[in-house]
Design a protein around this nucleic acid. Structure first.
Length: 315
DNA sequence: TAACCGTGGCG
DNA sequence: TCGCCAAGGTT
């Protein structure tokens, strides 16, 4: 266990590592806006950096301010979300942009509480934006930071199954007192988890805190539990994804029967994104009942109607 | 609390 | 090949 006396050295070694190893990400550029930081944080929820990069750049060019996105139709946000996954994030980001215009004069607020009140912004994202866009001292705790703390300090291979009060307390105890240093620390620990202290194959030989790591000292003990994998094949979620892909690629109304049954030859040939999306949906072979359920869920969330106006509602 | 919500790359 | 995993949020 780290004593409070060791903290300055710990902070220094991790931040010095960050200074040499940090990736050059556009939402870390001095040019980026608070809006850019917010968009990046939402896009990065459960989504790898490399996939976010091109979509973030396109969004920033298309909608450089909250007012720009708020003025667009919600469905445009969903379409330009592309295949990032969890598309309701796009709808919530649009709703957040509207809220920023309505309640904050079109600006991104700088406090944790105001950020937390925005759609799609939870405790992590609120803390991250307050810290990275506004330089505030916040207790930023994401999956990377949790894993680094679990290993280096607690000595376990994995953090708890779900975020615990004890983890939040530990993170708060480790946070540097100076705001500017706390921001660097948050970014540095996160980067360490993303690049070195990774889930699958940690590169302990390159770790700046290997000499102090409790997990390494204990001989890298195996996890105490097996993470529950996310079910995917055959789930409604998989069908939702395939249905939404068709709606997203369609330029006009989509005939309900095309979604609920198939395969249907639309005479579109084998090229084009719509054709590819239809092929994927048909290959799934999901029963009509499940397709109906997926479509109903998408309509319920406001994703289907926004994406393809004129769609016929399932009976 | 636990289930649900997408997608694609990698070990 | 295939299960695991990724800067979580909401209900």
């Amino acid at each position: 266990m780290f004593s409070r006396r060791d903290l300055p050295a710990l902070h220094r070694s991790v931040i010095e590592w960050f200074d040499t190893a940090a990736r050059d990400l556009p939402w870390r550029s001095p040019d980026r806006s608070a809006w850019g930081v917010l968009v990046s944080e939402v896009m990065l929820q459960q989504t790898p950096v490399v996939r976010v990069l091109p979509v973030w750049a396109e969004w920033m060019a298309r909608w450089p301010s909250p007012a720009d996105l708020a003025a667009a139709a919600p469905g445009e946000a969903v379409r330009h979300w592309g295949r990032l996954g969890y598309p309701r994030r796009a709808l919530r980001l649009h709703a957040a942009a509207v809220a920023l215009v309505d309640r904050h004069g079109g600006a991104v607020p700088g406090t944790y509480g105001e950020l937390l009140a925005l759609p799609g912004v939870g405790s992590y994202t609120a803390a991250a934006v307050a810290a990275f866009a506004f330089g505030q001292r916040e207790n930023v705790v994401d999956t990377n930071i949790r894993r680094v703390h679990a290993r280096a300090v607690t000595g376990t291979a994995l953090p708890a199954r779900s975020l615990t009060a004890a983890e939040m307390r530990l993170a708060a105890d480790l946070l540097p007192a100076e705001p500017a240093e706390s921001v660097r620390w948050n970014a540095a620990v996160m980067e360490l988890g993303a690049l070195v202290c990774t889930a699958r194959s940690p590169q302990c030989g390159q770790c700046p805190v290997r000499a102090a790591c409790a997990w390494l000292a204990a001989g890298r003990p195996a996890p105490e539990y097996v993470p529950k994998g996310q079910a995917w094949a055959g789930t409604d979620r998989q069908v939702r994804g395939a249905v939404l892909a068709v709606l997203r690629e369609a330029e006009g109304p989509v005939v309900r029967d095309v979604l609920l049954s198939g395969p249907i030859d639309l005479g579109l040939g084998g090229e084009g994104r719509l054709s590819a999306a239809l092929s994927r949906l048909h290959r799934l072979g999901a029963p009509e009942e499940q397709r109906g359920r997926a479509l109903a869920g998408l309509l319920d969330d406001g994703l289907a109607e926004e994406t393809a106006a004129g769609i016929q509602l399932p009976a």
